[in-house]
């Protein structure tokens, strides 16, 4: 993980003003109230999920400092959490982040082929984003759905029992509704409340 994070602009501030909407702030205060008084730091991971979702799909220094100020903790406490957990992206990602499981149970059921096919179809390598900013392709470890292997996750949705034909359908579907959001696609804010 180290090389990626050192290359990242983690320590470069853009000094852009960031702020949550009043309704989001209200939601965040509810989350903070789930923890005992003085333990508001516990809300860090849930708040980072909301921040990432509402502020462009990835985290940067400005966002992390803003989150730190909301929770009355130091920025470094946010940086160390954001760099530890694999669901937080420190570099910009596409509108759809395709995360393909590459761990054993999926691999023996064809997960390797799924990844190779996606690389071919999207014309990018794993870890990259398409030039139109629509898709990012990531390799992730076990998604906990081994019984329906091979699996992948696109943003909040799981896609299971994959085969190459299904990949074609999914990509076409996602491409066709670029700006649309699936009705069943709940946001982090909705799910955490």
């Amino acid at each position: 993980m180290s090389e990626k994070h050192f290359k990242h602009k983690l320590y470069v501030k853009e000094n852009k003003a960031v702020a949550f909407s009043p309704t989001t702030l209200e939601k965040i205060n509810t989350i903070i109230s789930h923890y005992p008084e003085g333990q508001q730091k516990s809300a860090l991971i849930p708040v980072l999920h909301i921040a990432q979702e509402e502020m462009g799909g990835s985290l940067n220094v400005d966002i992390m400092e803003y989150v730190a100020s909301l929770l009355s903790i130091t920025p470094i406490e946010v940086f160390e959490v954001a760099t530890f957990y694999s669901q937080f992206y420190l570099e910009p990602v596409g509108k759809y982040v395709i995360e393909v499981c590459q761990t054993g149970p999926c691999a023996i059921c064809g997960g390797e082929d799924i990844m190779a096919y996606l690389e071919e179809k999207l014309e990018i390598k794993v870890g990259e984003t398409t030039s139109d900013g629509l898709f990012s392709l990531k390799a992730v470890e076990c998604l906990g759905a081994c019984g329906s292997a091979p699996v992948m996750q696109v943003n909040t949705e799981f896609y299971e029992f994959l085969d190459l034909t299904k990949i074609d359908t999914i990509l076409a579907e996602l491409r066709s509704k670029k700006e649309l959001k699936k009705p069943e696609e709940q946001t982090w804010k909705e799910r955490l409340s």
Partner: peptide, 12 residues
Amino acid sequence: LDLHVHSGAGAY
């Protein structure tokens, strides 16, 4: 009893 869900963020 108060019960809440807390989400992780991808770490085995």
